[in-house]
Amino acid sequence: MPKAGTRDGYANGLLKLGSDSRVVVLDAGVSDSTRTQKFGEKYPERFFNMGISEQDMVGTAAGLAKCGKIAFATSFAPFLMGRTQDHQLVSVCYSEANVKLVGTHNGLAVGEDGPTAQSPNDIAMARAMPTMIVICPVDAVEAEKATIFLAEKHKGPAYLRLGRPDVETLYDDSYNFELGKASFLKNGKDGAIIACGVMVYESLKAAEKLGQEGIGVSVINMSSIKPIDREAIRKAAGTGAIVTAEDHNIYGGLGSAVAEVIAEEGLDVEFKIIGIKDRFAESDTQEVLFRKYGLDAEAIAAAVKKAVGH
């Protein structure tokens, strides 16, 4: 399978949904990058590019949704989520508006644009928003399936976290996205890595390396961050060691979500969180940033070794 971005999967999902006249797509002046342009070209009357005004876009999406539309409001993750928190709270979530917030270009993986573009806290914001579900797909297929799922099977607010980089396609068209359901991409007895988005690839690389050293670890794609798959976490805990991996601050994201389950259920497991260590990064390629800020396969493998007591 050729590489593709999760944002491209989103665009494909929107095109497949296009024949449903309830589906409307909004953007905030970045539709070339978010790929919503494709929907806009095919369905211009149901595409609203609101210009560079994220708050207005989210509010407008809420109004459209309250008149029966399924509204996808799209921008870069930091601006979409940071700028419009209050609008999400009042106009979308409390108002029970069927709005899907779609944030592309998440995390340090965005690379050269630097800290203002790297959204280190979008998962935390979305998780803390009452009634909002949070999905971070790993590849273009999962992004497409999640997009269709959000329109057809989930009435209510959602945050879909998408990335910029082109990534390997892990799933084929037979894959079925289920909310609150993780997938085990690899099974091992010594430990488990629970990851989301682009960090799934780093985790697979880490597992490979560890395997060569005789340490067998599971790799779990936890694309559904809220609601989270508690059963998968219990199963992972059975190995005795869990490491989470996310391209996001270590506070409030996937690691925190898994920690909550471990603590609440009293699971007896060694536990480490890999993520951005509460600091700002800088500009460079994803590869360089991941190495320097401890998000690469090496860092994950080192954390697993510590957790399994090697």
Binding site: V24, E45, R46, F48, Q55, D56, M57, V58, G59, T60, A61, A62, G63, L64, A65, K66, C67, G68, K69, A71, D86, H87, L89, V90, S91, Y94, S95, E96, A97
Partner: peptide, 29 residues
């Protein structure tokens, strides 16, 4: 927003005009 006659929650100032405009756009569609 659950009260009949209330179209959308408000209370944080500055949000209603965007929402109203979304409803106007839906009306045209």
């Amino acid at each position: 927003p659950k009260l009949p006659g209330v179209e959308i929650a408000t209370g944080s100032l500055g949000q209603g005009l965007s929402v109203g405009h979304g409803m106007a756009l839906a009306g045209k569609l």
